[in-house]
């Protein structure tokens, strides 16, 4: 069942950057790609406990702030040591000035 929730405003996140969204005890990461598209993944690395929104976005990759594990935030796919488990992704929709994510 869809469960669309407002995560942030469109202008809250710069192009090629990431923001943090906390909801119901969970942490999410919201990305704004260089082309302006928004994406969302779980906000905690699959390697150890690190908040991904402290990391660096380059193109379509998020680099974990703790040990440089990388993920493609569009698919959640792990891109090299030390991460080998993918991130969960969430559907995103922009409505007016709001970025909504579907928590399912």
């Amino acid at each position: 069942m869809a469960n669309w929730t407002r995560a942030c405003g469109v202008e809250d996140i710069d192009l090629e950057d990431v923001g943090r969204f906390d909801h119901a005890g969970r942490v999410f990461a919201i990305y704004r790609a260089p082309d302006g598209q928004f994406y969302a993944t779980d906000g905690i690395c699959t390697h150890e406990h690190a908040i991904l929104s402290d990391g660096l976005v380059m193109d379509h990759l998020i680099e974990c702030p703790k040990h440089m594990g990388r993920f493609d935030y569009r698919s959640g796919a792990a891109r090299g040591a030390p991460v080998c488990v993918a991130l969960r992704t969430y559907p995103v929709r922009v409505e007016g000035d709001d970025v909504l994510i579907d928590l399912g």
């Binding site: 402290d54 660096l56 702030p65 703790k66």
Partner: peptide, 11 residues
């Protein structure tokens, strides 16, 4: 604190 310098260092 935590990973607060990570971005600077990554850049």
């Amino acid at each position: 604190p935590g990973n607060s310098v990570a971005r600077d260092i990554a850049i």
